[in-house]
Structure formats: structure tokens, C-alpha cells
Design a protein around this nucleic acid. Sequence first.
DNA 1: GGTAGGATGGGCT
DNA 2: GCCCATCCTACCC
Length: 205
Amino acid sequence: MDWREITARSRILPRAFYDRDTVTVARELLGKILVHERVAGTIVETEAYLGGDDLASHSARGITKRTRIIFGPPGHAYVYFIYGMHECLNFVVGPEGTGGAILIRAAEPLAGVRLMQQRRPSAHSVAKLASGPGNLTLAFGVTRAQNGVDATRGALVVRKWLKEPPFEIRVTPRIGIRQCADLPLRFVIAGNPSVSGGVVAQGAK
DNA sequence: GGTAGGATGGGCT
DNA sequence: GCCCATCCTACCC
């Protein structure tokens, strides 16, 4: 899809979109358009990390040098480094100080596919270029340099279609965590080829 | 089709 | 010093 069509048919999500219940925002980010510089894709997989007693969330241990972004105002990016080589993109949600965040786990490429392919030469298909949180940041060129940036304006934003196509949401436990591993806080667009993991990992209804 | 293991570094106790 | 919100390769059905 060309950029002219994307910008004409969509609008940047305002801060009020993010300033709501964490699960609600995690569900509603599905189908939206993640944009970073010259790359865009449809968000097809998210996970909710709650404030308060969700021990899987980085915010569970309170405010530290790393987590201060999560306790800041909603609509900002939280990018962290994990396993010595990967970076993961989140958006801060809920009222300031509540510690909620949404991990963006996968997107279906819409524009800038050539650039994504250069960044991820080992990808097996276009659909899998940004499938998985580490693959997504690599394909989109998102790094810790984007930690804390305002996602309601600038190079990193999320856009909403003026007319959003319908889709079915499936809910599963979150991937790769030990604490609170059973909570149903992962949301995917059913049947989408860019969702990470196999059929089993995508989960039943 | 499936899984086991290693790479690699920052955050926090 | 241990724990990670991961990914890729090799290898085995």
C-alpha cells in the first residue's frame, strides 16, 4: 500500500486513546497502523502488562531508572533491551503513575517492505518480517533511542483507519513469562499470518 | 512436523 | 550472580 493512501485514510491516535484501561487499549490496538519513519504495518498481536500486582510487568517493582517511563504519561513509547540482543516496543497506557503498558508483539507489513527485508534478511516471508517482538523492532528500526518518545506526534506513531476492516480477536496467556503465566492478556487477530508462533501458540478461542 | 540449546548484556538483589 | 516480555540454528522425527 502506498503512503498517500495510508495517510489519507487514517489518523494518528490521540493521547486519550492510551489513557484508558490497559486491557481495553491492548484489544483496541489490534488493527491499528504502527508507523516508524518509512515503515508501516498493521498491529496483529499485543500483550497487556498491568500496573499494580501484575508480577510479570516491569512496573511491578516500582519506579527505577528503567521503569520511570512506564510511570509517566500515556501515549509514550517504552523500549527495553532483553536477552543481550533484542529490544521490545511498548506503549504506556492508563493514567500517569499507574504503570500500565502494552507490548507490541507483531505487525503485518503495509509499507517499507524493502527496508524491512534489508533489516531482516533471514525472514522466511514478508508476513513474518515483523512477527515476534524482537523481529518487529528490528524490522521497524526501533531501538532504545525511541525509549520515552511521544507516540502521538513525530516519527513513531500509531494511526487508526477512518473505516477499520472487521476482524476476530483471540485471547491467550502471554508468551515467555514465568510470573502470572496463566492470565489471558495476549490478544491476536485470528488467523493472521503475521502473528508469532505456530497454530498452537496462537491459541484457541 | 517438532524441540533443545546457545548467544549475549543490562537490571536489580 | 541470577534473571530475563527472544531468536536462530541444528538436529530429530
